[in-house]
């Protein structure tokens, strides 16, 4: 089946005082219609910048390059800001991490919900309003019509994030990028929002890139997972492959950090990964994880390729598949 979104060898570089920051170093992925890709990684691994790069929303100082960046067969890599603005919100939209600050305090919810639809589809205000109301209901907001004249400061964080989700759906985009949409919310709201996103996605047949550091969230929604470390994918595969048979030491380390009900004994120590993410200024020499990896060897000094080890399951490590499979991450 034709790929909806196709990204090949995406790089982001940001000149900073101390040199050239390379937060995204050669990311590739494909997304089919209706599919959910989770990009997982710890803070600062470049996952948010990856999504902003795809949306064309990088900070001005950042430079993006890619061998391929296509949405539904259309090349996005050389579009002007004006052309790109015709695609954003229309074919591809985004939900952000911070619901408290992501809505404009000066305009009503209704205005902010409808303006994208009016801009992209040229519909009448009343028609846009009706769509806004039906989407607000769909994201579980009661008395939706009475919310339209309200201002963001009159809504709670959970409500605002629902409004943001409804906003991203207004033009029925092909792809939604959700950048940690539940991180700023409390756990009960998180669960509701995740369930809702999942249902909406199935109902509307959108593809989704879901960015998170929370493996619990990933388990709920992912079809495919990409584990990101120091600006590059270290392991990619189907969700069950990553969860049931993780290969990369980093992935195993991450998984050992979450308690599993029934498996993790009460009072036992959870795993942790010692050390910190390497500096991404001036590029990374060799494997980015080698300073923290218990299996480091001389060969790690040159960066290994992301290679396919089993059907659709790829791993970036010098160790061969059987060695990787025998690794058990010890709780530190």
């Amino acid at each position: 089946m034709e790929h909806l979104l196709s990204v090949e060898n995406l790089h982001v570089e940001i000149p900073v005082g101390a040199g050239l920051l390379q937060p995204v170093r050669g990311i590739s992925f494909d997304l089919k219609k209706g599919e959910t890709l989770c990009i997982v990684g710890e803070s600062g691994c470049g996952k948010s910048l990856t999504s902003l790069a795809v949306m064309g929303l990088l900070p001005k100082s950042a430079r993006r390059s890619a061998d391929r960046l296509e949405l539904a067969g259309k090349d996005l890599s050389n579009l002007s800001e004006r052309e790109m603005s015709g695609i954003r919100g229309n074919d591809m939209s985004m939900i952000f991490q911070e619901p408290m600050t992501s809505l404009n305090p000066a305009y009503t919810i209704g205005d902010q919900l409808t303006e994208g639809l009016i801009r992209h589809k040229g519909v009448q205000r009343s028609e846009a309003k009706n769509r806004a109301i039906s989407l607000l209901e769909k994201v579980g907001i009661t008395a939706a019509a009475s919310r339209l004249p309200q201002f963001p400061h009159q809504l709670s964080g959970g409500l605002r994030q629902r409004v943001m989700i409804a906003m991203s759906l207004m033009c029925a985009p092909d792809v939604i990028i959700a950048d940690e949409p539940t991180t700023a919310l409390d756990v009960t709201i998180q669960a509701q929002i995740l369930r809702m996103v999942k249902e909406l996605q199935a109902e509307l047949g959108m593809a989704m890139i879901f960015i998170t550091h929370d493996l619990g969230v990933v388990a709920r929604i992912a079809d495919k997972i990409a584990v990101m470390y120091a600006g590059a994918f270290v392991e990619t595969g189907a969700a069950e492959q990553i969860f049931n048979a993780p290969m990369h030491p980093y992935t195993k380390g991450l998984l050992s950090c979450i308690p599993v009900p029934g498996k993790t004994e009460c009072g036992s120590r959870l795993g942790s990964i010692p050390g910190v993410v390497p500096s991404l200024i001036g590029g990374v020499q060799g494997c980015g994880f080698r300073s923290r990896c218990p299996y480091t060897q001389e060969a790690c000094a040159s960066e290994p390729e992301l290679t396919e080890r089993a059907g659709g399951h790829a791993c970036r490590c010098v160790l061969d598949t059987s060695e990787l499979n025998s690794i058990i991450w010890e709780a530190a």
Binding site: S85, S102, Q112
Partner: peptide, 22 residues
Amino acid sequence: RADYIRTARAKGIRPGKVLFKH
């Protein structure tokens, strides 16, 4: 630099309108 400006851009609002409206 505010988040809601990024939101407006993510919605595909035209650059001039982002500037003068939002």
